[in-house]
């Protein structure tokens, strides 16, 4: 079992005619993902990376039974691409694009709430169910099949933790990147709910970072509803207030909101085990299994 994606997932790549879109469409296929189509306005009828391109996502969904979209559309046009994906409809939309204006995302977020579709990102590396499918830009070969679920706001931090799990022979059910922006679709609680409901996920790693209150909300959920053990990591303990640390959402408020301390404390008191180093996270998972 897994969450969000599996070998039934049929992917349409929005922006497949761009450099990134084409490259990662090919990488996804090489991993074994069922990429069935591309969607680019005005490019319908072409073939890219061996799949047909449609002018609209609705066309790709209708003709190729696509049920998930991966979005590699530049920031200025990304909100429109996301609205289109939500309206097509597909079950899952993965938004890789970084730098989408915040107000555009507020509108997307509002629309998202009116649909049954799940959105990952934006500004996320995507999602992978090892051995079945990867949607996005994650490096497939560091993942392995197993019992641990992962959810993270950061791509490379996920890779770091997965790498050390895989080297210890610990595989993953699904790894989910939720993205580093202030306004995102699926949040920690949504992902944790899915892992809690997945009978094959025996333990969960949650990698958070400074900014916002998503980790605190996740801690409340873990404390009240989760039986699956959770190991956590929070990046940004040394981040100064008021500075954006790479991700648009990774910022400690000038009056001290969204700090790592607050998140670590919330997770620890909810019974999650927060590591001081990524290796300690892997140690915790090893203990859980």
């Amino acid at each position: 079992m897994s969450i969000l994606v599996d070998n039934e997932t049929r992917v349409v790549v929005q922006g497949i005619t761009g450099g990134e879109g084409k490259f990662h469409a090919e990488q996804m296929m090489a991993y074994g993902t069922d990429v069935v189509a591309g969607a680019v306005p005005g490019k319908g009828g072409q073939e890219v990376a061996g799949v047909p391109v449609y002018d609209t996502v609705a066309g790709a969904a209708r003709e190729e039974d696509a049920n998930a979209a991966v979005v590699f559309v530049p920031p200025a046009f990304a909100a429109d691409a996301l609205f289109e994906a939500l309206d097509s409809p597909v079950d899952l939309v993965v938004a890789i694009t970084e730098g989408i204006p915040q107000q555009d995302m507020a509108s997307v977020y509002k629309r998202l709430g009116e649909t049954d579709t799940a959105l990952l990102g934006p500004n996320c590396p995507g999602v992978i169910t090892p051995g079945e499918a990867k949607l996005g830009i994650l490096p497939g070969n560091i993942f392995s099949e197993g019992d641990v679920g992962l959810v993270s706001r950061s791509g490379t931090l996920t890779y770091q933790v997965v790498d050390s799990l895989t080297q210890r022979g610990i595989g993953q059910t699904t790894a989910v990147g939720i993205g580093g922006d202030p306004i995102i679709g699926t949040d920690f609680v949504d992902a944790l709910e899915r892992f809690e409901a997945d009978p094959d996920t025996e333990a969960v790693v949650m990698c958070g970072e400074i900014g916002g209150e998503d980790e605190e909300e996740a801690a409340r959920y873990i404390g009240e509803y989760m039986d699956t053990p959770v190991a956590g990591f929070i990046a940004g303990r040394t981040a100064p207030p008021g500075k954006r640390m790479g991700h648009a959402g990774a910022i400690v408020g000038s009056s001290g909101t969204g700090t790592a301390e607050s998140k670590i404390q919330a997770l620890n008191s909810a019974g999650a085990r927060v590591g001081d180093t990524p290796e300690e996270v892997a140690d915790a998972i090893e203990d859980f299994l």
Binding site: S154, T156, Q160, R237, T238, A239, M245, A250
Partner: peptide, 21 residues
């Protein structure tokens, strides 16, 4: 480093091991 989360983590580890980023 590469990737916001991993670079932040590297800063934190410098601090954790007694250094100063």
């Amino acid at each position: 480093g590469n990737g916001a989360g991993l670079v932040m983590t590297t800063l934190d580890l410098v601090d954790y091991y007694g250094g100063s980023p």
